[in-house]
Amino acid sequence: MMLQLDSHSIQKLFQKRAPNSHKGNHGHALLMAGSSSKMGAAIIAAKACLRTGAGLVTVNIPKEERVALFTAVPEAMIQFREENQHWSSFNAIAIGPGIGTDTSAELLLKALIAAVNVPTVFDADVLTILSKNQDWLSKIYKKSILTPHVKEFDRLFGIHHSEDERRQTAVAKATELNLIIILKGYHTFITNGQEQFENTTGNSGLAKGGSGDALTGIITAFLAQGYEPINAAILGVYLHGLAADITLETQSEESMLITDVIQNLGKAFKEISKDRVD
């Protein structure tokens, strides 16, 4: 049975922030993103992660790109990709946006899969790497999250001829691998193999570069704050779409930028908190 996400179901999942909390109560997220030609992906993911409430955000980037990140997102910390990687202090990790598909990215992904034991979001370029290294899928930390769009999904799991076929495969693969799969698109589909959800927010203004990077940042923030992975996926997808719908108050679907959507995450949080019964 598939559940359509609505404000009522989201309100039941959303946990209100305690008034006496501090940054240590809201988790430390690591985003492994960006490369010399794709630093925008890292910046977008970091801004979205911070706007979604992660207590601390560290971004793993090439050292030569540090000025771009420091300038665009002064609230984020930096981990340099060229140095020894330390992952044990993070509550949640994401890897993929703008990271590239070269040998160095492949080796980094392989090392992360072998070492990490916290929920991880796999997106963008690393999905392409995984499609070429199918045996790695079974080694991913359980209940981690894959976020493919249609083309990435077909690279991972074979050519499909309809949305229904992809959804059936998503359920089967989520069950087999004990992962959560977010099949992005119109009415984004989310499954952990046992449960199936269809999103009801969002619009075609999200059909632009950067939207997936923001979604990755949003979901990772929820993971870092201690949400169960399936709930982090649900909340992330719904909130991402809701912020895009709110953006239509001031932009059109043609003119909307993902940075506009990130700016409206605050209004989206207020919307899902409205009339909440604790």
Rank of each mutant, 00 (worst) to 15 (best):
L107G: 00
L108A: 01
L108C: 03
L109M: 08
I113L: 06
A114H: 12
V118I: 10
V118R: 09
T120V: 09
V121W: 06
V121Y: 07
F122G: 06
F122I: 10
D125F: 08
L127T: 02
K132E: 14
N133Q: 13
D135Q: 14
D135G: 02
D135T: 15
L137K: 03
K143L: 09
L146S: 05
L146K: 05
T147L: 10
P148E: 07
K151Q: 12
E152Y: 08
E152L: 05
G158Y: 04
G158A: 10
I159Q: 15
H161C: 09
H161F: 12
S162Q: 11
S162I: 13
E163F: 11
D164G: 13
E165C: 10
R166F: 11
R166M: 15
R167L: 12
Q168R: 15
A170F: 14
A172G: 06
A174Y: 08
A174N: 13
T175H: 15
E176C: 08
N178L: 14
L179E: 14
L179H: 11
I180R: 08
L183Q: 12
H187A: 13
I190L: 12
N192T: 02
G193Y: 07
E195T: 09
E195C: 03
Q196H: 06
Q196Y: 01
F197W: 13
F197E: 02
E198S: 13
T201S: 08
N203P: 00
G205Y: 05
G210N: 07
G210V: 06
S211E: 00
S211D: 01
G212M: 06
G212T: 04
L223A: 03
G226C: 09
I230W: 02
G236V: 06
Y238L: 04
L239E: 07
G241S: 04
A244T: 11
A244M: 10
T247D: 11
L248I: 10
E249C: 05
E249Q: 15
